[in-house]
């Protein structure tokens, strides 16, 4: 870590869908270059929390500051912030009506981040990085799950984000394809990307995370380094959860 600037600051975040309270009171600071992994049982609010960070879900209370910009302030142009916060989804969400190259070039060209030639060059470089240069002309329907997810990561990287959010990126993959996606993510982490990852891959959490958060019932119950949380979990619910999944 070269510096310890706060990239994501969350204080007392609340989110409810009508009566149902999904996030009760979540506070978190993520530093530049840090990899934070969020684990927890399904329905614990971890995906909702992640989706609040780029306002795909509107929070109902508290504050989120991304790179000094309060995105919970309604007057902020959220599109500008999203340009610098990449997101990778469980179900890939590649644009089915475009080939891989156009998937990668759409946002940079449309948002005038680059002209066509520059965008193409960057797209090809990102495909190279995820090991899929030969798939530039393929359509999403012609790719395997693992390939789709690597393209999705490349697509996010084309916007030159400085934060990446991963929402259970390997949960929809066949087991033999999980490795290739985690490998790309590990490399990103090594290169100093600030990452928040919601996952069930405990191996990844142990190996790559700087910090692991255990969420349950809409709150962060425990927060520690991977060694601590996996070897000496303090909260009984963390212990219970880890006993089931490890």
């Amino acid at each position: 870590m070269q510096s310890n600037a706060v990239k994501i600051h969350v204080s007392h975040l609340k989110k409810s869908f009508k009566e149902l309270e999904v996030l009760e009171d979540v506070s978190l600071d993520v530093l530049e270059g840090e990899v934070v992994v969020i684990i927890g049982p399904s329905g614990s609010g971890k995906s909702t929390f992640l989706r609040c960070l780029n306002r795909l879900e509107e929070s109902t209370g508290g504050e989120i500051v991304i790179d000094g910009i309060s995105i919970t302030d309604k007057s902020v142009d959220i599109n500008k912030v999203r340009e610098r916060v990449g997101m990778v989804f469980q179900h890939f969400n590649l644009f089915n009506n475009m080939n891989v190259l156009r998937n990668l070039m759409l946002a940079p060209v449309d948002l005038k981040k680059a002209d066509k030639a520059q965008a193409r060059e960057r797209a090809m470089a990102m495909l190279e990085r995820v090991g899929l240069s030969d798939k530039a002309e393929s359509y999403p329907s012609q790719l395997s799950g693992g390939q789709k997810q690597r393209v999705a990561i490349a697509r996010a990287l084309c916007m030159k984000p400085d934060i990446m959010l991963f929402d259970e990126p390997t949960s929809a993959l066949d087991p033999e394809m999980v490795g290739e996606v985690l490998e790309v993510m590990k490399e990103l982490a090594r290169d100093g990307m600030t990452m928040v990852v919601v996952t069930h891959e405990m191996g990844f959490a142990r190996e790559v995370a700087d910090r692991v958060l255990f969420m349950d019932g809409g709150t962060i119950l425990e927060e520690a380094t991977p060694e601590e949380i996996f070897s000496h979990p303090k909260n009984p619910r963390t212990q219970d959860f880890l006993n089931k999944v490890l």
């Binding site: 795909l56 340009e83 946002a107």
Partner: peptide, 8 residues
Amino acid sequence: EAARSLGL
């Protein structure tokens, strides 16, 4: 959502 997440 994917399109919006890219800033479109």
